[in-house]
Write a protein that binds this DNA or RNA. Sequence first.
DNA 1: GTCTATACGACGATAGAC
DNA 2: GTCTATCGTCGTATAGAC
Lengths: 196, 196
Amino acid sequence: MFTGYQDSVMSPREKVIATALWLFTRKGYFNTSMRDITRESAVSTGSIYHYFKDKEGVATALFEALLERMQTELDTIMQLHESAHDQCRAVISLLFDITQSEPDVMAFMLYVKHREFLPNERPVCSSKPFETMRAMVARGMARGEIEQRDVQAASACLFGGAIRMITSELDGILEKPLHDYYEEVWSCSWRAVAAI
Amino acid sequence: MFTGYQDSVMSPREKVIATALWLFTRKGYFNTSMRDITRESAVSTGSIYHYFKDKEGVATALFEALLERMQTELDTIMQLHESAHDQCRAVISLLFDITQSEPDVMAFMLYVKHREFLPNERPVCSSKPFETMRAMVARGMARGEIEQRDVQAASACLFGGAIRMITSELDGILEKPLHDYYEEVWSCSWRAVAAI
DNA sequence: GTCTATACGACGATAGAC
DNA sequence: GTCTATCGTCGTATAGAC
C-alpha cells in the first residue's frame, strides 16, 4: 500500500502522479495496470482519464515533472559554486542525496527504460539535465581545471563511477549506506579527469 | 524482418532465442508478443511451448546464454593476461567490441531491465561476470597495482566510465564510433584507481 | 515434435449517470 | 469533475489433430 503522501493535501492529478512513481518503480510500467493506479491512488478511472489522455500520458507527465525538478536543482548548484570542480562535486552529492531520500525518483530517472513505453521521448542521457552536466565539464576544460579531451568521454568518466554506485544501491547490493562511499568515489572520479 | 541467422542451420530452439534477442532489444520484452516471436522465428506456437515453459522461459534461456558466453570470454582474458591492469583493459576492449559488433547482446545484458520480467533473476551487477570483474580489481589491489579502497567503489569507478560510453553508443548519441574513444576512456579510468 | 484453432483472462479505454 | 459499469481487443497459453 502506497503511503507516501498522507501528510499533505494533494490534487487528484498529483495523487495519480505520485502513485504512478511508486508503482512504476516497484513493479515496472507494464506490470502496473490502470486498475492498480486507481486502487492505490484512490482516484477513479473516470477522473484519471479526465486529467490524462491515457496511461502513457501519466508516464509522460511524471517523467517531465522529474526532469524539471532535477534541472532546477542543477541550476541552483551552478549558481552556488564557481569552479567546475565544486559544481561537479555538488552534483554527485545531490545525486547521492536523492538516491537515499527518494530512491523512487532516482530509479525512475536513471534506471527505468523509458523508451519502451515512451517511444517519443529522447533517451535520458540526451535530456537537459545530462546536457547541463556535460556543460559543466566543458566549462571545466575551458578554465583549465579538467584536462582537454572529448567532452562526452570526460563526462562519462567523471560521472560514470557515481552512477554505477547509485544503480548498485538501487539494486540493494551495497553493504554500507551510499553516502559512506561518497569521498572515495569523488576522489577517484575527479582524479580521472583533472588537469595535470 | 529478422535476418540474423540465415547463414547457418539453427535448431528451432536456437531460432527462438535469436529472434527473442532481436525483438526484445528492439521493442522491449512487454511490447513483444509470442505472436511476434512465432512470426519472426518461423517456429509455431506449439513448438515454442514445447521447448520453453512460457514467455518468461524464453527470456530466462536467452539471459543465461548471454551471461555464460560473457563469462567464457572473461575467463579467457584472465588466462591471457597477468596483471590486473592488462586484464581490466582487455575487459573494456571486449565490452566495446561486443557493443559494436553485436549491439543487441550488449543492450540486452547491460541495458534491459530484467527484473521487470524476470522477477527471480538477480540484478545483472550481482551476476557472475560482474563478480569476476570485481575480483580482477581486488586482485589488482592485492598486487599493489590499484590503490587500496573499497572494491565496490573502485570497480564502479574503473568500469563506470566505459559502461556509460556503451549506453551512450546504444542510445545513438555518440558522434564517432565507440572505439575512437577507447584510449581516452581507458586512460581516465585507470588513472581513477591506479596506485600512487 | 510440429502444427492450427481456440479458450480464457486481463487490460486499456469509454459511456453515460450524477 | 467524479463516479461505476462495461465494451472490445489483444495476448498468453492450451487442446488436440497429425
